[in-house]
Design a binder for these strands. Structure first.
Lengths: 117, 117
DNA sequence: ATAAACCCTGACATCAATGTCAGGGTCAAG
DNA sequence: CTTGACCCTGACATTGATGTCAGGGTTTAT
């Protein structure tokens, strides 16, 4: 499968597929003409990468456990849990931050409205 | 007041003060030697800028109403409210997004823990 | 054989406030 | 007069996945 086909099959841009390879998330062999050739398994692999990206993980984090997850169930990859937990803490912290901002903004909006009425 | 003094008085770096001027948030006059000279009012002005930055507004947004806010109370500046409301919506959207991500992560963490026990 | 559709690499742009460095002028105290 | 502490401008770096373009080779269908 050539890169354009993999892109069509996954909805991921050609640019991104090359980037994933750069980041060691995806491998391909090269044909004599220099074109990348992908195994059919690459489709599932790309979908897995996308899944982790939408979870907010970085390519670096993904690369640290992807080799394992592609062979086993997540639960058997010891690297996954700590990364999930770190990410969860990041998200919780960020939600707290945004919530405080939100409260502050709402107060200020109310003040303006009150002064105008 | 020279830029270093303003920086000391506000806790804002010299680099940032120059940037604010670039972005039309702050003005200064120039002495014969090319140095910036600030009025004592600049201290309060910088603190006001900082306040809006911590609310998550961009320098561009701030510059759109700062001239008004420095002269009047916020409530009399018609430009402020719509910007606050837009920002509030952004924050709410982001909180929803993060909350979904959070739920997803928690589910995955639980699955892993369940499978291991 | 030619054109369209693919593929390749390398590089710059995005967002935005701030850090940092280089190269150079100014001022104040000893 | 020298040294250290300021000040100036201009420019590159940061973050990170992706878009986009240039310049050039390959393949495929007509």
């Amino acid at each position: 499968m050539k890169i354009g086909e993999l892109s069509a099959a996954t909805g991921v841009s050609v640019r991104s597929l090359r980037y994933y390879e750069d980041q060691k998330l995806l491998t391909s062999i090269r044909l004599d003409n220099g074109y990348r050739e992908y195994s059919p398994l690459a489709i599932e692999q790309v979908q897995t990468i996308q899944l982790y990206l939408t979870l907010g993980l970085s390519t670096e984090q993904i690369s640290s456990f992807l080799h394992c997850v592609l062979k086993n169930k997540e639960a058997f990859c010891a690297e996954v849990l700590p990364i999930y937990e770190r990410k969860l803490k990041e998200i919780d912290d960020r939600i707290v931050e945004l919530t405080q901002l939100r409260t502050n903004l709402i107060d200020r909006i109310r003040s303006i409205r009150d002064e105008q009425s």
